[in-house]
Amino acid sequence: MNATWQKFFQIIQKPERLIIGLMSGTSMDGLDIALCAVTGSGVATRVKLAEFKTVPYTNAFKAEVKSIFSRRDADLQMVCLMNEKIGLLHAEMILEAIASWNLKPQDIDVIASHGQTIFHAPQSLHGLDNYPNATLQIGDGDHIAVKTGIITIADFRQKHIAAGGEGAPLAVYGDYLLFSKKDEDRIMLNIGGIANFTYLPGDHDAARVFSTDVGPGNTLMDQFVQKHYKGRYFDEDARIAMAGSVNEQLLTALMVSDFLLAGFPKTTGPELFNLGYLEQAQVRSKTEQISKEDVMATLSRFSADVIINAIEKCFGKTQTPSIFVSGGGMHNPLLLNQLKAGLKNARFFSTDALEINPDAKEAVLFAILANETMVGNKTNFGNREGVPSVFMGKVCLPE
C-alpha cells in the first residue's frame, strides 16, 4: 500500500484526531487557524479547541485578493496565480502557527482548508437557465499539503453542489453535530460578510434542521468604509455608524430584493449585496446626498432587520429561542443592540457559552466536516433541497 494512504488509514483509526481547521471569509481580515482535538463522529462528536489564532493579511495581499474578488471581469491569469499563492501563503501561516504552539507538523493529523471564496454563483443569483449552481474557492489544497507535509482535506463546497445544494451555507452539518440540545430551540447565528444561521430544534429531529444565508452581515458596511475611509477596512466599534442616524427612505429601498423574500434555505454573497446595490437603493430613495455617517447607520440597521425578519420567519414573534452569535459582526455593538431591540423575547449568547471561541467557530466547523469525511456516517437531513446528506472535501496528499 502507498505509505501516505497507509498513514491516512492509521489516522482514521485513532481514537482522537488532531485537526487544523482553516477559514478565510469574504471580509478577508486574515486566516483563522483552529487546532482541534476531535473524537467520535456524528452526534457523538466531541471537540476541544486546543489552540486558535487569526493571522492577519497584509493590506497588499488584501488588495491582490480584492482585484479578483466577486468580479465578473477578473483577470483570469491573476485568478490562476492567486490560487497557488494563497495555498502557499496559508501553508506558511500554518507552519508558523504550529511552531508557535511548540508543535511539529508531524504532530498534526489533518488540515481542513476552506480556501478563499472569490465568486459565489448559485442559479438563484446568476439566473441562467442552462447553467448549474456554482462557487469558487481558491488556495490550492495540494500546495498546502506539500508545503506543510500534512494531509489536507479541501474544496468542501463542490460536493455540496454536486449533491444538489448551492455550496452554502455548510454550517448546518457541524452545528447540528456539536451544538444541538434536547428541549432547547437554538439559533446559531454567524455574522460574517454575509449573515447566516442554523436552526437547531429542541427535539433533535435532523429532518427539521436547516442552515440558510439571510442577507448582508458586514459586507455592505465594510465595502462602504473601504471606499470612503482610506486605510480602514471596517467600522471599528461602529464609531462611524453611531455618529449617524438611520434614513428610513434608504432603509425601505434597501429592503426591496427578491432574495429577501425567498424561502429557506437560500444562499447569497457580495455578488448581490455590494456597493452597486447600495447606489441603486440611494437613487430610488433620492438619498444620494445624505452623510456617510447616516449611510453607515442605515446599513447597520439594514443588516439587523434582515436578520430579525429571518429569525421571526422561523420562530414567529413570541417564541424565545436561544441565539448563539459568532463571526465578526458580534464585535459590532450597534448591530448587536439593534438585534436585541428587535428580538426582545430571544436570549443572546456568544459561542463562548458552548466552550467554542466565537471567532474560531467557522474554522472549527471545517475541522468537523473533515472529521466526518474521514470517519462519519451520513446524517439524514430528510433529503430536503439544499441540505444533501453527503461527505465533503477532497483529500490532498503531501507526497
Score class of each variant (00 low, 15 high):
N332P: 02
N371E: 03
I144M: 12
H331T: 12
V325E: 03
L220T: 00
S350E: 06
L365R: 08
S322Q: 14
K147R: 15
Q282L: 05
V43T: 15
I311Q: 08
S350N: 09
I323G: 01
D32Q: 05
L95K: 14
Q116H: 07
A50G: 00
A241I: 10
S70V: 11
M78S: 15
L369Q: 12
T152N: 09
L31P: 05
S322E: 12
H114R: 05
T212G: 06
E51W: 10
P270W: 03
T152Y: 07
G244E: 06
L136H: 07
S124V: 09
I153L: 10
I118N: 05
T58P: 08
A50S: 14
G316C: 04
R208T: 12
L31N: 06
A154L: 08
R232D: 07
P270Y: 02
E362C: 01
K181Y: 07
R72G: 14
T267K: 10
D222V: 05
E312S: 08
C396I: 01
P169Y: 01
G244V: 03
Y173K: 09
Q289M: 15
T148Y: 10
I144Q: 11
M82K: 11
A74Y: 02
Q77G: 04
E16S: 09
K286H: 13
S124K: 08
T379E: 08
G40N: 05
P358R: 05
Q116P: 08
Q338Y: 13
T148M: 10
L278W: 09
Y173W: 09
I194Q: 04
I68P: 06
F197K: 11
M93W: 06
F273Y: 13
K230G: 06
G382P: 04
R46A: 14
T351W: 00
P321D: 06
K66D: 14
F302P: 07
D185Q: 11
K394A: 15
K104D: 12
D140N: 15
V146E: 15
Y173S: 07
D175T: 09
S67Q: 08
I323K: 05
V65L: 14
A297P: 11
S245P: 09
F234H: 13
K361D: 04
